[in-house]
Amino acid sequence: MKVRILRQSGPYGKPYWQTFNYDGDSNASVAAILDNINYSDDIVDSEGNPTDRISWECSCLQGMCGACAMVINGVPRLACDTFAKDLKGDVITIEPLKKFPVISDLVVDRGIIQENLKKVDAHIGEYHQEEERDHELEYQIGRCLKCGLCLEACPNYVKGNNFFGPLFANDSYFVASRSRDNGDQIKKDYKKHFAKGCSKSLACTKVCPMNIPTLASMAKMNRGF
């Protein structure tokens, strides 16, 4: 099997493609394949040329932390949660997320996620003790990895503009339903930074590794619940 990777040696480096051979377990996850290429022996590309190890980010290695988000065969996914056997063809193509600046190879800077949430000061503040709310939806939103896959897939999300993307719709509902003093503000921010910009492609819901029902959050927020 061949693994084609879009590489970049640093933030200002020029991106280039490099191909590697992989002949390990075909049930392996893409994360395991990257480790295998990096550490089975000295790393060489498919032509046998020595090269630098491939940088990528990981932490839990079991789909619970969102570190290893990347674009695999054109689809934004978590590497530890994507398996060779489920991918078509005998070449796996791996690229860094394109909507974030590259730090090195497959490692990108997703700091904008935190910055945007900070801009609107998304927090609960005074807690609203109310049992009538949608507990299950809140629980699902609480699982958001802030991995950025939804932003990568969203046709409306462009770095630096006013539209904060699907994860913000979810966090908006989370705050609005749980906060006594910050709910009205977040509803306004939702309109400004989400509702106006969303064209409802729903691409986000297809790539979310946690299957968060973003549509349900949007419905609640749009209705003003």
């Binding site: 980010e57 932490s59 839990c60 619970m64 932390c65 969102g66 570190a67 935190q114 990895l145």
Partner: peptide
């Protein structure tokens, strides 16, 4: 090095 969402605590 990384945001809290990547810390072991989430496991």
């Amino acid at each position: 090095p990384f945001p809290s969402e990547r810390a072991q605590s989430v496991l």
